[in-house]
Structure formats: C-alpha cells, structure tokens
Design a protein around this nucleic acid. Structure first.
Length: 502
RNA sequence: UCCGGCGUAGCUCAAUGGUAGAGCGUCUGGCUGUUAACCAGAAUGUUACAGGUUCGAGCCCUGUCGCCGGAGCCA
C-alpha cells in the first residue's frame, strides 16, 4: 500500500485537480484502443474515468486484463476534463487488481425482472438500485430525525409474539422451543405499553404478513415506523402524520434530486407536498365515490387513457418498423428495449382500461359499511395532488383497538393516508380505545377473547389516557417518492409470496 | 385460494406444423482520447419438464413445475 498517496472517494474528485490520489473500486466499463485504455471505475459514491496509456506498460497490461466488475485500485493524477463522464478523471500511473471478475451476468442491456431478481445480489450494483437505496436511506433518516427532534424516544418492539394474535391467517408461525409463536405484524399493542411509560415513543423495524397477495404493493417482509403518543386525540395524530410526511418529502427532494431525476420522477409534483393535506371522512368519501362528478371525471379519464393508448400503440408500431432500419447492434438493442417498455405499458394500460368500467361500477355502487377497496383508494387519491386523509371508517371494517367515535358509534376514530397519483394507502392510524369496557366489547365483537390480552387491558386499568398513533410503510413511501411501479425495488432483498432468494 | 399471461443460446427476443436464428454479452485479432467506442472473425441450444396427436412438433392437445400480474386482504 502506498501510504503517501491519499485514498479518496470519487464524489470528492472535482476539488482535487492536479493532486495525486488513490482510488479503489470496481470496473463499471472499459474502452480501449491500441495505445490507450479507458477504465470507468465505480466506488459507490460515483463513477470516474481512469486513463491508462500504453507507455505505462505494467498498468496498461493490467488494465486490459480487467473484466466488468473486477475490483482494482489506481494511483494517478486528477484532472478536470469535459470529455470525461463525471467531469474529473484520473491519469493512471499505477494499477493494482484485487480480483479479475468472472463474466458478470448483468450487462448493459435490458433484462427481465425474473432474471434481475434471481441476481438481486449483483443487480444492486447498478445505477437504478443504488439510486433507490439512497432515497430509502434519506427517508429512514428523515423519519428518525423528525421524531427525535420532537422529543420521541425510540423503543424497539418484539419480533416474536405469542399465538393469541389478531388474524392468524396472515401471521408466519415460528417454532419456539416447544411452543408455536409468530412473527410480528405490528409493534403497536406493545408500543402502547411503552407509550404509557415515556409519553411519546416510536418503533421502527421489520414486520411480517403472510398474506397471499401478489401485487405491486405487497411484500411479506417490510419495514414500518410506528409512533404512539399519550394524551393525543385523532386530530393530533393526523397533524403528526402530516408534519412527518412533509418533512420526509422535503428531505428527499433536497438530498436526492439527482437520484429522483435519474429515476424519471416528476420532482415538481413532490414539491407540492405541503400542509394542509385534504381531509374527508369515510362517509364523505363514499358520497364522492357514488357521486355524479366522479363518474364524469372517471369517464373523461377513460377517454384520455384510450387516446394515450392509441399513441403508445402508434409509437410501438413506429419502433418496430425502425428496428429493421437500425444499423448498429446496440441501436437495435436500444429500440428493442423501448419496444419492450412500450409493450409493457400498452399491456398495463389495456388492462387498466378494461378494468375501469368495473371500477366505476364498484365506486358508484359502493355501500356504506365496506372497507375501501384498492380501486376506490386509487380513484380517491387521483382526485388530489397531495396526500389525502380519509377518517372515521365503519367500526365493523376496522381493528378492535380503535376508539369508537363518541359522535357516531357506528364509526371509529381512525384515518388512512392515501398517497397521490394513485399510490394509495401509505399510513393507517387511529386514536385507541382507552375505555376498558368498550375495548372488551370490541374484542368480543371481532371474535377475540379479552382473557388472551390481560397485559394489554392492564394499560386501560392503570391510568388510562386518550392516546393514538399510526404505522407508515417504508417501502410504499419510497415507491411513491421515487415514482416506482413496484415496492420490491425499494428494499435490498425483497421477500414476496413467490420469492425468498437470494 | 381464484382469474389471466409467459417459459427458445449467458441475456433480450425471432422463427405458416417442414434444416432453430438475430442482437447484446463473451473470446481472438486490429486501432493514439474513447463516451453503450469502432472494424474483422469465433464459440454457444435436452426450445421448462412428462406424456399425447402427426409422415413430421419450439408451434397443436393433456398434465406438472416455475415466474409475472390482478382480485380478496393489507402498510
């Protein structure tokens, strides 16, 4: 190791013109001619073109031997050059290879999702996954900064929980010595205990759902942040959620503009995320869904989408024709990738358009008392350009711990927060029922035995107070902020119904 | 669990029931600054699996497996 040469990161190179530095990373790309070789290095902070001239015989031979994703170190002089991809490049005087990589499966061409997911451990090195993971990091940091700054205490909740759970079908069983226990679905019930000790608390951890859902919004293992506040009512909890979402969206827009732009996200749309969010009650939402204006809006949307579909089909045909005329191989490949993208979009849109009349019918015939379906949420959230709260759902459709409304015993003091642009529910929260008699009734009404939750009822027995909280799904939030189609890209190693590898 | 779609070279895709192909990647050679470099050449297949129909099956039929998407449920 050359101790006299400072080892630096690529993101810092622009301020180091003229200096001799050392970089370590992986080979992202290589181009060579007889007398000069260009190595594009990736080190996790950026990419840098390294120039190796044939005059440096050892380094040149070493450079030619490097394969895609080989790990290596270069020593050289930094110079600013507009011809270089990152603006700064390194003229190499010394090169050391750590390992020459085997043939790397992921190439510059478009791959199918199955292949990419089977190679997720290698796919992570690509631009798109790293951009998304950086946004995810910002989201998590912003959430923690937000709560820490408001006097909350982070308290970790158990992951293994005893059998007497809520909905057994959606829990993963685990062998626990001679007992059967489950992976947690939420930290909330326990968190209420911590809340009565510390006042304002939150937990942040993985959570598990064995739901047999194969959709773009579902993972079997995902991360959730759950705050819980003592002496708080529904409105206080909603204000907290509103402030938190604004803080998170703001943090991402300021810290990750480059990543968002790379992902093709409409950053201006995120700039509109500001207080106050729209608020409507479940009953108002039902009225809206059944109303004439929404039917007209949906039909107009359907017409617009039909026109959009025609446009896509036309572009697809044009692409297919130009494919034959493309001279170079990679141009063909590029058109090919575009064709695949268009086909996918056309398929999605066709499916969407086909389902639309049914969605309109469902919305128009929606009867008070049901939980909102996915299509209803989508319809509602598309009406607004910022998140929307829907409050006070029917008691029968919601969990036992939600506080029954004093104004209307048919509904509970809860809320869902729907992300705009059709992303749907990212938060579910409520004021909790603090009356021991009422919560016992609610449990029995849901077929649960209060005897199974003695410790939970104790919280209503020793200084019960109005309190509440919510749960935010990290992956859905990241998918919304990044403008992704599927939550599986927002976590390094997603767990879905059909996949636990790698 | 139900409904729909897909499965051909390492990858992405072609191939009227009639000799399995292209591009990318890989390898070899050439080239003094490339920007998915370029030019020339080479290797690469149990058409997911098991049956069936047929003179003949990648293509048609039946079953199995795998993956993708949607519904219900949910963050």
């Amino acid at each position: 190791m050359n101790t006299s040469t400072p080892r630096v990161m690529i993101c810092d190179l622009k301020t180091m013109a003229g200096q001799t530095v050392q970089l370590r990373g992986w080979l992202h790309g290589k181009r060579s001619s007889g007398k000069v070789c260009f190595l594009v290095m990736r080190d996790g902070t950026g990419i840098c073109q390294c120039i190796v001239e044939a005059a440096m015989a050892d380094a040149f031979a070493g450079a030619l031997a490097l394969t895609h994703e080989s790990s290596f170190e270069v020593t050289g002089t930094v110079r600013l050059d507009e011809r270089s991809p990152g603006g700064a490049e390194v003229a190499v005087s010394g090169l050391r290879c750590f390992q020459v990589a085997d043939e790397f499966p992921i190439t510059r061409k478009a791959h199918g999702i199955d292949f990419l997911m089977n190679n997720r451990h290698l796919w992570l090195r690509s631009n798109r996954p790293t951009a998304i993971l950086r946004v995810r990091h910002t989201v998590i940091k912003a959430i923690r900064d937000f709560f820490d700054g408001q006097g909350f205490t982070l308290v970790d909740m158990p992951i293994l929980v005893p059998g007497a759970g809520e909905d057994r079908q959606s829990l993963f069983p685990v062998e626990y010595f001679d007992e059967k226990v489950f992976l947690t679905q939420t930290g909330q019930l326990y968190l209420e205990g911590a809340c009565m000790a510390l006042g304002k608390v939150y937990c942040f951890g993985p959570t598990f759902r064995a739901e047999k859902s194969k959709t773009r919004r579902h993972l079997t293992e995902f991360w959730m942040v759950e705050p819980e506040v003592a002496f708080a009512e529904l409105e206080d909890v909603m204000a907290l959620a509103e402030d938190m979402i604004c803080a998170v969206a703001g943090a991402v827009v300021s810290a990750n503009r480059a990543e968002l732009e790379f992902l093709g996200r409409d950053v201006e749309a995120l700039g509109k995320i500001a207080k106050p969010f729209h608020r409507l009650t479940y009953s108002e939402a039902v009225e809206r869904l059944r109303g004439e204006p929404i039917r007209r809006a949906l039909e107009e949307e359907l017409e617009r989408d039909t026109v959009r579909l025609q446009g896509l089909v036309a572009e697809l045909e044009a692409c297919e024709q130009s494919l034959a005329g493309a001279k170079k191989g990679w141009q063909q490949d590029k058109i090919d990738a575009r064709i695949r993208e268009l086909r996918e979009n056309v398929q999605d849109l066709e499916q969407d358009i086909r389902a639309r009349p049914e969605h309109i019918r469902l919305a128009q015939s929606f009867t008070w008392g049901k939980d909102l379906g996915g299509s209803d949420e989508t319809i509602l959230s598309r009406q607004f350009d910022r998140p929307v709260f829907v409050t006070e759902y029917p008691r029968d459709a919601k969990a036992f711990y939600m506080k029954v409304s004093p104004r209307d015993p048919r509904v509970v003091r809860n809320f869902d927060l729907l992300a705009p642009e059709g992303y749907g529910e990212i938060i579910g929260g409520s004021q909790r029922e603090e009356n021991i008699g009422t919560i016992g009734e609610s449990m029995r009404a849901k077929g649960l035995d209060p005897e199974d939750y003695p410790w939970y009822l104790d919280l209503r027995r020793y200084g019960s107070v109005p309190h509440g909280g919510f749960g935010l799904g990290v992956e859905r939030t990241v998918a919304w902020l990044c403008g992704l189609k599927h939550v599986r890209e927002t976590i390094a190693f997603p767990r879905t119904m059909g996949r636990v590898y790698p």
